[in-house]
Design a protein around this nucleic acid. Structure first.
Lengths: 137, 137
DNA sequence: ATAGGTGCAAATGGTTTGCGAAAAC
DNA sequence: GTTTTCGCAAACCATTTGCACCTAT
């Protein structure tokens, strides 16, 4: 049986421990630079390349999720149990997470209609939150 | 009254005509390089910078839609009437477009629950098409 | 006449990679 | 002792931009 990249032996390095714990403690989604900034406070010699390499590894191992919340960067967050999606305000940039059971129905319908097996779902909604709508008066 | 960028006078240049007609005739989503390749066949002196500048303009004017169908590039397509989403096969890379009324319900629920006004929807589904599933035997 | 567009080449910015030294197992 | 990772600097690649010239109105 072929052993794929994700199942290979993976040494536990201090850098990996540090990065993963920062991601898990974080309240918000982090991009690579922000993760690097936080990591450097605890290990000043860590490099940005290591951050990128390990983000890729964690993603392949299914430990974190990658999201695109704007046009430029990729954001990461620790993988949690509930499937959730994001709502981004064009006014203040605030990111709201939400869950809805309706998305499962939708996926089932799409799978049936297209004879497709869905393995990844990313729903991105953009608009205006209440505060930003009220401000526009 | 302030005139915003999208309402300013916009000369019709041969480059713009060419680019827009290529996008409208295209069956598939095009990225900037592919659009450039096709444009150069009809106007060998057109530049990639002009392609990018006009893609941005067309997008701001609402003539085309921008989508992310993979991790690297941005893809563009002519804006059509029906709201539709994309299903991308991880096996063969094939892109299936679909529509479903369920997504409107979903958005209404999300708007109600979060007191949010949604202005852009992007649902990205990834998985395996029938052919690619059958091949894995 | 003039605001706006074009082509070119250089810059930008997020991400990836080659390499020799160092660490994990 | 062998395999994998690390830090560094350079490379990559899609996209953007400064500039001098050109074109649509």
């Amino acid at each position: 049986m072929k052993i794929n990249r994700n199942q290979r032996r993976r040494p536990v390095t201090p850098q990996r421990k540090l990065l993963l714990s920062i991601i898990q403690e974080a309240q918000r989604h982090l991009d690579a630079k922000e993760l690097y900034r936080r990591a450097i406070e605890r290990d000043p010699s860590i490099s940005l390349a290591t951050v990128y390499r390990n983000l890729r590894l964690f993603k392949e191992q299914g430990l974190i999720e990658e999201r695109r919340l704007d046009e430029t960067r990729r954001y990461y967050e620790s993988k949690r149990s509930g499937e959730h999606q994001h709502l981004v305000c064009r006014g203040c940039g605030h990111v709201i997470e939400f869950e809805t059971p309706l998305i499962r129905n939708l996926i089932e319908e799409v799978e049936r209609q297209n004879n497709f097996l869905v393995s990844r779902v990313e729903l991105y909604l953009e608009g205006y939150c209440r505060e930003c709508r009220e401000e526009r008066d």
